[in-house]
Design a protein around this nucleic acid. Sequence first.
DNA 1: CCTCCAGGTTAACGACCGCTAACCCCGCTG
DNA 2: CAGCGGGGTTAGCGGTCGTTAACCTGGAGG
Lengths: 198, 198
Amino acid sequence: MATRTDAPTRREQILKEAARLFAERGFHGVGVDEIGAAVGISGPGLYRHFPGKDAMLAELLVGISGQLLTGAKQRLKEVDGAAPEVVLDSLIEGHIDFALDDRPLITLHDRELDRLRDSDRKLVRQLQRQYVELWVGVVRALYPDLSEPAARSAVHSVFGLLNSTPHLARSGSLPGRATTAALLHRMARGAFAAAGSA
Amino acid sequence: MATRTDAPTRREQILKEAARLFAERGFHGVGVDEIGAAVGISGPGLYRHFPGKDAMLAELLVGISGQLLTGAKQRLKEVDGAAPEVVLDSLIEGHIDFALDDRPLITLHDRELDRLRDSDRKLVRQLQRQYVELWVGVVRALYPDLSEPAARSAVHSVFGLLNSTPHLARSGSLPGRATTAALLHRMARGAFAAAGSA
DNA sequence: CCTCCAGGTTAACGACCGCTAACCCCGCTG
DNA sequence: CAGCGGGGTTAGCGGTCGTTAACCTGGAGG
């Protein structure tokens, strides 16, 4: 993992603030002036960096889906040949890291997809589908009795479980990141195990 | 359960269609004209039934939260004194029924809360909190080793799991309502069990 | 038969929002 | 030092949206 140390570019600032605002108030609920104000410039100045408001959302959603997918592929390669439990644990860990570190993006990811242009939406959906199918393969390797539709449903449901992190913030004082991550990990494993014992 | 057989009133039609549209395109993404068109009247005719667009959303969200809470209380009364497993199963069953039968409402429920007036939002949050606390009590009765914050996190996460039903529709042809419900139920139990074995 | 009202209609207003136009400033570079 | 381009600014246009105003209509009640 090549951790960035240099200062974020203006584009990156904008994307980050836009993600936060979109997650908080919805795509249509945020004006370009607010996004500009959040990075210290005002309104139309954004158009020096993006062709339009839609483009920001598109770049965010494509970026998320791509990151999730390539991260998962990377992890699959790293643990290549290991037992299915190990592979699944790695996938779960990766998803939890993402859900805990980029909550606004996780929120956007399944909330604002329909606000995209057709071509962008197709791309995002394709990336998402690949990500899901990757999980489905691993889950079925671990629980061969699970039918493919059932495995797919189970994967989607576990995503729902892991992506609940934004709600955890609001509720009572989460007891430290590591503890929360461990709890989520256990629950995901437990959910899959229960799904597998048809 | 007193099942309704009489025709739905116009108000109810409007609420139903508004829920569907809000879930599909977001509160700000739907115009009053579209809501009107969905029930066969046009635009400002809605104002004979609601004081404004916000009021529709408010009534929907308050309604959902209230229904979930009173339904759960009802179930608690029905199985009063039973073993904790039985009580939890009943809660899970109720939530799954709701998630499968009223997907648009489930979607709205955690997506558009911030679009409400302060007073309405407070009310909804209070109802939601009561619902959560009711679950937390049952979960902790069944898994006494679980700390209260952990139990609360677990409950929120299982809600995320159960509320993933809208995503199941999009993906592959869910194999019948009963099968899906059974799968979700098993997974929820498995997730709680895994959370409980700290 | 007249009245009235619930429940519609269309027209239009005012606010807001995304985006463009026109202009400006400043730090490079030849 | 001239020029120029990246990255800002403000003013304003065009369209959309929520809401109100004014008007209409069919059926129930006295």
